[in-house]
Amino acid sequence: MPCWGWIMKCEDMEKKILLHESGELSLADADELVRHLESCTDCRSFHDDTARLLSTARKTLSADGPSPRVTAAIMAEARARVTTRTIAIPWRRARAFAYAAALVIAVTGMILFHDRKGPTDDAVADRPSAEIEQERISGVGFLLAIVCEDDVGAEEYVYEQGPQNLYELGRQLMKLEGLDTTEFMQEDDDFLSLPGALQPIGLRRHSVDEHPVKICV
């Protein structure tokens, strides 16, 4: 009858069996594993079943590859990119420039819209402030979405650049728009949260998929 200590050791060994199979186990741990397998039938059967199951699953689940036209299209894209890079402005800088330009235009537009004295001002004054606030909020969400291109882009952006840059940009834009940023905080490394009102259009945790950030407009 195994005692608790033995069962815990077996749980630990099952992890080590997986790591051994993937070639990620240190030599010392591998030695310990081999010694344990010699004396523990449960772990030995887990080891043997796992090895057979994985080997059969690999054969079962692996497919040949995409259609040849797909690979051809990828290589065409790869060549086009190299050509543009050598004869034009580097793409990354061009994109950064485009973002900057879009931001400047959009922010200027917003500032002009809110500050200008004139006929439109009365129209603005007549509208309920909640509606105007909502418009400003949408503006911020829209600009953040431009920066990230789309949902997948947002996730990649945060993965590559860290959430800090996106967070900071969001905060600055909210400030520019005169929105309250006290509730806009970064709770941990990959968790951005916006006040309740921004939730539908802002950043939020995509909880179940464990993708850190979601942008939707």
Partner: peptide
Amino acid sequence: QEVWVRVIRKIDS
């Protein structure tokens, strides 16, 4: 195809 297009476009970052 889309995966590789993204890799190609984001290769600098």
